[in-house]
Simulated assay, not measured.
Amino acid sequence: MDGQDQQVASILRAIRAVAQRLASTQPPHEIYTSILTGSGWVQELLMDRPDRIRCALGVHKEVFLVLIEILSGAGYQDSEDVPLVEQLAIFLYGSVTGLPTRLMCERFQHPNDIITK
């Protein structure tokens, strides 16, 4: 291994050590600390201009509310962690945007295991 390869290896070791230190000091559920939770964002969409929810979730407000009624009638309900309206919003937002899970986690302020249920 020449000098340049040794420097690269040394830098990679340092980066790995810093990443491991950061991962061990930050509890997984505390990385989502936005003041606007996923539920708060969905409520904001429902209360704002009608075109805003359509742009974000791909459906008109009335359609969203009917879908909630249909899901409730079919026995779907709030989970321990996520209300039904937010569950539907997560599904629709992911379908409309095609965002990767990590960005969905950030938008809705939930860890990966909640978003991918």
Rank of each mutant, 00 (worst) to 15 (best):
Asp2Pro: 08
Gln6Glu: 07
Gln7Phe: 10
Gln7Thr: 09
Ser10Val: 05
Ile11Asn: 12
Ile11Trp: 14
Leu12Thr: 15
Arg13Gln: 07
Ala14Thr: 13
Ile15Asp: 10
Arg16Ile: 12
Val18Asp: 05
Val18Ser: 05
Ala19Arg: 11
Ala23Asp: 04
Ser24Val: 00
Ser24Met: 06
Ser24Tyr: 02
Ser24Ala: 12
Ser24Gln: 08
Thr25Lys: 01
Thr25Leu: 04
Gln26Arg: 00
Gln26Thr: 04
His29Ala: 11
Ile31Asp: 00
Tyr32Arg: 03
Thr33Met: 00
Gly38His: 12
Trp41Asn: 01
Val42Lys: 11
Val42Cys: 10
Val42Arg: 12
Gln43Gly: 04
Glu44Cys: 04
Leu45Thr: 01
Leu46Lys: 14
Arg49Met: 08
Pro50Tyr: 04
Pro50Leu: 08
Asp51Thr: 09
Cys55Leu: 15
Cys55Gln: 03
Leu57Cys: 05
Leu57Val: 10
Leu57Glu: 13
Leu57Arg: 05
Val59Asn: 13
His60Arg: 09
His60Met: 01
Lys61Val: 05
Leu65Ser: 06
Val66Asp: 10
Ala74Cys: 08
Ala74Gly: 11
Gly75Met: 07
Tyr76Arg: 09
Tyr76Met: 14
Gln77Leu: 09
Gln77Gly: 07
Asp78His: 07
Asp78Phe: 01
Ser79Met: 11
Glu80Ala: 08
Glu80Ser: 12
Glu80Met: 04
Asp81Phe: 02
Val82Tyr: 11
Pro83Trp: 14
Pro83Asp: 11
Leu84Ile: 15
Glu86Ala: 05
Gln87Phe: 13
Gln87Thr: 03
Leu88Glu: 07
Ala89Met: 05
Ala89Asp: 06
Ala89Cys: 10
Phe91Asn: 13
Leu92Pro: 14
Thr97Tyr: 02
Gly98His: 14
Leu99Asn: 02
Pro100Val: 09
Gln109Glu: 04
Pro111His: 04
Asn112Asp: 12
Asn112Pro: 09
Ile114Asn: 02
Ile114Ala: 01
Ile114Thr: 09
Ile115Thr: 08
Thr116Trp: 05
Lys117Leu: 01
Lys117Gly: 10
Lys117Cys: 05
